[in-house]
């Protein structure tokens, strides 16, 4: 694509030690994000979305996990970065928000204290200065009484308000990238829509790139310009959202799209993908989706690589060239 990417991930793999054994949760994850771009990672529960996001910021438990691969961000590899250097990236260059705003905020400190300490650790601001900036940050995420929220404890706020506060904390240092891990999953539907609008608005206003993690393809389609599909710890498809919605190249992405009530053609029955994800302990060497794939053929037991299916469209499927898979929208519907 155009110019130098903001983040270029390659060969990212996460291993967990469980007792004496080691399991590999993700393998050879690769993607890149341009400055200001909004990229979504989608996939079923357990496919490794959260683990990938945490690995980027070195937030996995050090004692039981091991990360391989690289993630180039502003000219340095942030995987395996020394703790001090990593702390200058966390919160300052890359912000992160999580699914459960209640448990992600410290219950015994006020929202203001939790924003203020981020400002102070990165900019060494004075208390008054930090307060002014914290209140401004709360106002910028659409909180109508920022002064009151500044002095509130997390339990005194509603779920939506807490997630707004969480976003304010993550964005107060104006990072270049925001990783949002299921930021709306724990919220009511109406609040969900508000938070998505807010993230879109903030991202376009400030030019902050977004890595939006969700199991909900509908949310990704609304929010992002690019979509990465993960299955069983691997990236299986990487394409602009517009391409992927109309003509997915991987049977799994197609299956996800067809099972979406919001995006599928009106009146059509909602098929779901049957079968189970293979366990981390015995991953097949060949295509990991083969057991559930309607198009599986003998050639599919060979290890699959990411291949270019179209310009700017990568897919991990041996048969991508000869399959014509249904998407959520036909070209016609899209035009209409």
């Amino acid at each position: 694509m155009n110019g130098e990417p903001l983040l270029a991930v390659s060969g990212l793999g996460v291993h967990f030690r469980m007792g004496r054994q080691e399991v590999q949760a993700t393998r050879d994850v690769a993607f890149s994000i341009q400055p200001g771009e909004r990229v979504g990672i989608v996939g079923e529960s357990g496919c490794g979305k959260t683990v990938t996001g945490l690995a980027l910021l070195g937030l996995l438990p050090a004692a039981t996990s091991r990360v391989e691969g690289s993630a180039m961000f502003e000219g340095q590899n942030i995987i395996g970065l020394a703790p001090r250097a990593l702390r200058r990236v966390r919160g300052r260059k890359i912000g992160m928000i999580f699914q459960e705003p209640m448990s992600a905020l410290d219950p015994v400190f006020t929202i203001g204290q939790q924003i203020g300490e981020t400002i102070r650790v990165h900019f060494g601001a004075t208390r008054e200065d930090a307060r002014t900036r914290a209140v401004a940050a709360l106002a910028s995420v659409g909180i109508s009484s920022p002064e009151r929220v500044h002095d509130s404890y997390p339990h005194q706020l509603s779920g939506g308000m807490r997630q707004r506060a969480m976003i304010a904390i993550a964005l107060v240092c104006e990072p270049r990238l925001l990783i949002a891990d299921e930021p709306t999953t724990a919220l009511d539907v109406t609040i969900q829509a508000q938070i998505i609008d807010l993230l879109l608005d903030l991202s376009s206003r400030t030019g902050t790139a977004l890595l939006f993690i969700s199991h909900d393809l509908g949310v990704i389609a609304e929010t992002c310009t690019r979509m990465i599909t993960m299955y069983a710890g691997q990236v299986v498809e990487d394409a602009p959202v517009d391409f992927a919605l109309v003509r997915p190249r991987h049977p799994y992405t197609s299956g996800l799209l067809r099972s979406l009530p919001r995006l599928s053609p009106r009146g059509a029955a909602l098929p779901s993908i049957s079968g189970r994800v293979p366990s981390l302990r015995d991953m097949p060497a060949g295509c990991r989706f083969a057991a559930r794939c309607a198009h599986a053929q003998p050639g599919c037991d060979a290890p699959q690589i990411m291949a270019s299916a179209a310009p700017d469209h990568l897919v991990r499927c041996a048969r991508h060239a000869d399959l014509d898979l249904p998407g959520a929208l036909t070209e016609l519907e899209k035009v209409a």
Binding site: L54, R90, F98, S103, D106, V108, T118, H122, I169
Partner: peptide
Amino acid sequence: LSSQYVRTLHAKGLSPTAILWKHGLKN
């Protein structure tokens, strides 16, 4: 120290020392 809010504190760029003595002890 293994809670989600401590993970947030790490994600904000706080040092383990600050996390332990400020947030850990108060909690």
